[in-house]
């Protein structure tokens, strides 16, 4: 019996990645890039798109060939697929968004070793059909993106007074003694924000580690 494309089960796979088992706040993966690329919203958005694309597509590809991969060399096969996708993204960025690509520097390339991608391949795509794997990859990518975008917005507004490069804090604030928060452009600022997001998310979902 064919299952509907968006049956309740499938919706749950998507929702799990975004909320219940969010890769950053629940699995605590991908922290390094979340700190590095979020000083501005623009880089955060591009990075989010890149990672979501790679996670979803590599999940589909690996899921399609999962029954033909010898388990002894599965990591190498997975890495080959992921690398091919990441190089595609990297080349596209260099061709069409060169300045953003320079700002992101090594972090696009490092998607290859991102724990979220490898984790979803091992934990999900190796044992599930392509459509479900796609939804799982998409959900996790969106969960990662949501956190990155929130941190990116807060850090850019309070750290530089801008949003996507536009000034959002009125000049009259500065004239009256308002100063940008230097902590927000440093890595510790992202750490504190990340901590607050994990705190809020777990307070709402009621999840506790003990």
């Amino acid at each position: 019996m064919a299952e509907a494309l968006l049956s309740n089960k499938n919706k749950k796979i998507l929702k799990d990645g975004v909320w219940d088992t969010n890769p950053i706040t629940y699995q605590v993966l991908g922290i390094c890039s979340a700190l590095a690329v979020t000083t501005q919203l623009k880089t955060a958005l591009v990075m989010s798109f890149g990672l979501t694309f790679v996670t979803a597509m590599s999940n589909v590809v690996i899921s399609l060939i999962r029954n033909y991969i010898p388990s002894q060399i599965r990591i190498i096969v997975q890495l080959t697929v992921v690398s091919a996708l990441v190089i595609t993204i990297d080349q596209l960025l260099r061709a069409y968004m060169f300045d953003v690509s320079k700002q992101l520097s090594v972090f696009v390339g490092l998607i290859i070793t991102n724990c979220i991608v490898m984790g979803r391949l091992e934990a999900f795509a190796m044992g599930n059909p392509p459509w479900k794997s796609f939804l799982d990859g998409l959900g996790n990518g969106l969960g990662y993106s949501a956190v990155l975008v929130i941190i990116g917005i807060i850090r850019e507004i309070f750290g530089s007074g801008t949003l996507l490069g536009y000034h959002v804090i009125p000049a009259s604030f500065y004239a009256n003694g308002y100063v940008n928060n230097g902590m927000m452009v440093l890595a510790p600022g992202a750490f504190f924000l990340l901590g607050v997001i994990v705190w809020v998310q777990r307070a709402i979902s009621g999840y506790s580690e003990s």
Partner: peptide, 10 residues
Amino acid sequence: AFVFFAYPAQ
């Protein structure tokens, strides 16, 4: 420490 790193000029 927060003020020191966030608003060093002040």
